[in-house]
Design a protein around this nucleic acid. Structure first.
Lengths: 239, 239
DNA sequence: GGCGATCAACGTGTCGTTAACGTTCGACGG
DNA sequence: CCGTCGAACGTTAACGACACGTTGATCGCC
C-alpha cells in the first residue's frame, strides 16, 4: 500500500458519485468512477487485463442495470479476496440488507460522512494489505521490554499496562513497521492524518513526545529524530 | 484439524451462499455448498458413507424444503457431536432463536462480517478438536467467579443467581466470545441492534452499565472501554 | 401494571488539536 | 572554526469536541 491506493467507486447517483470520487482523490487515492454495475464489472475486468488491480471497491447496493451485490459476486469470482465496502440505503428493509452486508468487508449506511468513509477505507486497506501474499499484518509487536497490542491499543511492560489513544497507537504501529529504519514524516502524516500540512506536523510531534514518555522506562528504546526526514524507532525485536 | 478443515454450508440464498463459500475457501477451508436442508442432509450422509466427515456445519435457519433447525436435529441423530453454527435472521423472534441455540455450538445473526464468521468458525473448531464423546457443548461461559448460562440467561456466582434480560444476555455473550480481546462497538451494535446510530449507541452504553453492575462483585472482572473502538471483557477463564 | 427496551438529558472524562515557548539542528558567512 | 539565524523539532498546557456513563422518564408489550 506504499503508493496511492486505487479505488473503484460504483455509484449510480451522479452527484454522490462525483462527490465521493472528488473527496477521495483529495485524500490521496486514485479513483475510478462508474455509474452502474455493468460498467463497474467492465472496469474491474479492464484493470485485471491491463495487469493492474483495484485495492478496494466501493459499491452502491441499489443500482439499475446491475445491483451492487450481484456485481460483488461476479467480481469475487474473478478475485475472491477483492476488498469490498458496500454503500447501503437507510430505507432498505433489514432483511434485504442482510444478504448484502454479509459478503462485505465493511459497509456504510447512507447517509454517512466523508470523514467516516475515509476512516473505513483506511481500515479495510490496512487489514487487507499484503493479504494476497499470505502476509498477515502483525497484531502484536515487541519493543525492547515492551509488548504492543495494536488492536487493543495496549502497551505492556511486565505488570504495567498502558492504554494508548488511537493516534498514539497508529503512530507507534507505523514506527514498529519501520523498526530501526526510517519512518518518513510525510508518509506517516498522510497515512494517519491524511494530509501533511504544518499543523498536522506539529500534532504528530506532540504524539511523538507522548510515545517517548510511554516508552522511557526502557532506556534501550528510543525514538530518534532524523532532521527533516522523519523518525526512527531504535529497539531490539526481542526482550 | 491439522489439514484443511472441511465445512458444509447450507444456505438457500444463492448469492449469499456463493459469497460465503468463496470467502471461506480463500481463508483456507474446503467448502461444500448446498441450497436447502434436504440437499444438506444428503451431502452429510454422502460424506459419512464415503468414510469422510465434515468438521463443521454452517446452517441457515430459514430455508425452504427443510429448515436449518430440522436439518440440525437429523444430522445430530447421525453424528451427535457434529459442530454446528446457525445463521439466523435479525427479524426472528427471540423465543425461536433460543430454541436454536440449544442445539448450536454458536450462531450468527445476519448481517455479520466475514471477519466475524471466520473468527467463530475457528473458535468452534478449536473447541471441538479432541472433544471426545458426544458431549453437547453447553452454551455457557465462566467469567471470573461467575458462570453465565447463555440459553437460560442466567448469571451465577456461588449461591447468587441473577436473571438477565435478553439484551443483557446477548451483549454479555458477545463480550465472552471476545474475552480479553476487543469487541468492536459497531459490530456489537449491528449484531444486537441491527444498526449503529447514535441512540443505539447510547442504549448499548446503558447495557454495559447494567452488566458492570451485575459483575461488580468480582473485582477481577472488568468491562474496559477502548475509546472509539469498543469494549474488552477482562476476566480469566476459570475460577 | 410490570417489565424490558429505548430515549433524552446531563455530567464527566478522554482525545486531538492548537498555541506558545523553548531547544536543537544545520547552513552559511565571516 | 565560530557566531548567527531561520527552520525543524520538543514539550507543556489549554481548549473544544465528542465519546462515554448514568439516571430517570417514556414507550410498548405481555
Amino acid at each position: 500500500m506504499a503508493p496511492t491506493p486505487k479505488l473503484l467507486v460504483v455509484e449510480d447517483d451522479p452527484n454522490l458519485g462525483a462527490l465521493l470520487a472528488e473527496y477521495l482523490r483529495v485524500k490521496g487515492f486514485e479513483v475510478d468512477l462508474r455509474a452502474d454495475g455493468e460498467a463497474g464489472l467492465q472496469a474491474f475486468r479492464g484493470a485485471a487485463e491491463a495487469g493492474g488491480r483495484y485495492d478496494l471497491l466501493l459499491l452502491d447496493v441499489m443500482m439499475p442495470v446491475k445491483d451492487g451485490f450481484t456485481l460483488a459476486r461476479e467480481i469475487r469470482r474473478l478475485d475472491a479476496q477483492a476488498p469490498i465496502i458496500f454503500l447501503t440505503a437507510k430505507s432498505m428493509k433489514q432483511d434485504t440488507i442482510q444478504g448484502f452486508q454479509a459478503g462485505a468487508d465493511d459497509y456504510l449506511t447512507k447517509p454517512f460522512s466523508m470523514e467516516e468513509l475515509v476512516l473505513r477505507v483506511h481500515a479495510v486497506l490496512r487489514r487487507s494489505a499484503g493479504l494476497g501474499l499470505g502476509i498477515e499484518q502483525p497484531q502484536h509487536h515487541t519493543i525492547g521490554s515492551y509488548t504492543f497490542d495494536v488492536r487493543k491499543q495496549l502497551l505492556r511492560r511486565g505488570e504495567e499496562e498502558r492504554k494508548l489513544t488511537t493516534k498514539e497507537s497508529e503512530l507507534l504501529r507505523l514506527l514498529c513497521l519501520h523498526r530501526n529504519g526510517l519512518l518518513e514524516r510525510r508518509q506517516a502524516l498522510r497515512e494517519i492524518w491524511g494530509d501533511d500540512n504544518y499543523f498536522n506536523g506539529r500534532s504528530m510531534d506532540v504524539y511523538i513526545a507522548k510515545l517517548r514518555k510511554h516508552l522511557r522506562e526502557d532506556p534501550e528504546v528510543e525514538i530518534i529524530n532524523i532532521h527533516g526526514q522523519g523518525f526512527r524507532l531504535a529497539a531490539r525485536e526481542q526482550a
